Simulated scan of single mutants.
Amino acid sequence: MPTYNEAGTIGRTVGQVLEACPDISIVVVDDGSPDGTGRLADSIAAGDRRVHVMHREGPRGLGPAYLAGFAWGLERGFAVICEMDMDGSHRPQDLPRLLALLDRRPQVALVLGSRRVSGGATAGWPWYRDLISRLGSWYARHALGIRVRDATAGFRAYRSWALRRVDLGSVESSGYVFQIDMLRRILAAGGIVVELPIVFVERTQGVSKMGPSIVLEAMVRVTGWGLERVRGCFGRGPAGR
């Protein structure tokens, strides 16, 4: 769970996640939050051995934070590595559903908590954020030739073996396009991706990290990957199921 200025939500969110899934470990990757999020995370970890904290000088971006968390989990032999937002947008009660789907379908490499399949939705989002999200997924689907409806979804459960098939060292995406980047890599490696409907709830505290530079990065990178696909440099990989 990457954090940057999430002091108002970290205590509640971590508590709810552990209540929903008592047997998991949580890794908080804090990018030097000036509001003291890192100190709060240390305090929580001191009282619960299931909580671990990584401190980085930041902000250094969402993608690198997730990669640091992936590396931590892979080094320690976890079979499943999940990613969630700390701001409460991803409901903790949905995490057991993602894990249960992996239990039922051992061939699945990645489960996405999806807003864009039947039963999925957003709650409290302004219309322009919803439009940006929809357009981003639509563009990614058509540029990359995939069928996943919510390509930018950030609530995910990966099999560790699927992450090991991907050259994580070559991932350079920093912002939210990291989610699209990982999705295309998992598909190109032959992984099966399943979308599970969730309700994405607008944060009640703090501010979104989405900005023009993040949107621009996504457009440039997805366009570049799409051109590579057309030229046959990257390869399509199987479409999502």
Score class of each variant (00 low, 15 high):
Val148Met: 10
Val177Asp: 10
Leu99Ala: 09
Ser33His: 05
Gly15Trp: 09
Glu83Leu: 10
Val222Asn: 03
Arg60Cys: 15
Gly224Asn: 12
Val177Gln: 00
Ala151Val: 11
Arg165Val: 05
Arg134Ser: 15
Gly32Thr: 06
Ser114Met: 10
Thr3Val: 13
Arg241Glu: 15
Met1Arg: 11
Arg203Asp: 08
Gly69Ser: 03
Pro212Tyr: 03
Arg241Tyr: 07
Leu187Pro: 02
Asp103Ser: 12
Gly136Tyr: 01
Arg56Gln: 11
Arg156Ser: 13
Tyr139Ser: 08
Gly11Ile: 06
Val28Trp: 05
Met54Val: 15
Ile24Trp: 09
Arg229Glu: 14
Pro96Gln: 09
Val14Asn: 00
Gly15Val: 09
Gly226Cys: 07
His90Val: 00
Ile26Thr: 04
Met86Tyr: 11
Ser174Leu: 14
Leu131Lys: 07
Glu195Asp: 09
Tyr66Ala: 00
Leu216Tyr: 10
Asp87Lys: 02
Trp127Thr: 14
Tyr66Asn: 03
Thr152Glu: 13
Ser173Tyr: 01
Gly113Val: 06
Gly169His: 10
Trp72Ser: 00
Gly175Gln: 04
Arg129Cys: 00
Leu168Phe: 10
Pro22Gln: 11
Pro59His: 08
Ile10Leu: 15
Arg231Trp: 13
Phe70Trp: 10
Val171Ser: 03
Gly61Pro: 01
Ala65Leu: 10
Ser160Pro: 08
Thr223His: 11
Glu57Leu: 04
Leu112Cys: 07
Arg56Val: 06
Gly120Tyr: 02
Ala109Asp: 15
Thr13Gly: 00
Gly36Ile: 04
Glu75His: 10
Asp31Phe: 02
Ile26Cys: 01
Val201Arg: 15
Tyr139Gln: 14
Ala7Lys: 11
Ser43Gly: 13
Arg115Phe: 06
Pro64Trp: 10
Leu99Arg: 08
Thr3Ile: 13
Ile186Tyr: 02
Arg229Asp: 13
Ser114Gly: 04
Gly120Cys: 05
Val230Pro: 05
Trp72Asn: 00
Thr122Cys: 04
Val215Ser: 07
Trp125Glu: 14
Gly240Glu: 06
Gly8Thr: 04
Gly190Leu: 11
Ser160Leu: 09
Gly145Arg: 12
Arg147His: 12
Arg134Met: 05
Ser137Gln: 03
Gly175Asp: 06
Leu168Asn: 12
Ile44Asn: 00
Ala41Tyr: 04
Pro64Asn: 04
Ser208Trp: 00
Ala20Thr: 02
Leu62Gly: 03
Asp35Pro: 07
Met84Ser: 05
Asp181Trp: 12
Gly38Trp: 05
Leu183Lys: 01
Gly15Glu: 05
Arg49Pro: 02
Asp103Glu: 15
Val215Phe: 13
Val28Cys: 05
Ser43Gln: 15
Ser174Ala: 14
Ala79Phe: 02
Gly235Glu: 01
Gly145Pro: 07
Asp42Trp: 09
Ile180Ser: 03
Gly11Trp: 04
Leu135Ser: 06
Glu195Met: 03
Leu101Glu: 15
Arg149Pro: 01
Asp130Cys: 02
Gln93Ile: 14
Leu102Trp: 07
Leu67Asn: 01
Gly124Tyr: 08
Ala71Trp: 03
Gly58Asp: 08
Gly15Ala: 06
Glu75Lys: 15
Met1Leu: 14
Leu144Trp: 08
Leu227Arg: 13
Ser25Asp: 15
Val194Met: 13
Glu6Leu: 03
Ile214Thr: 07
Val207Tyr: 08
Tyr66Ser: 02
Gly113Asp: 01
Gly120Asn: 07
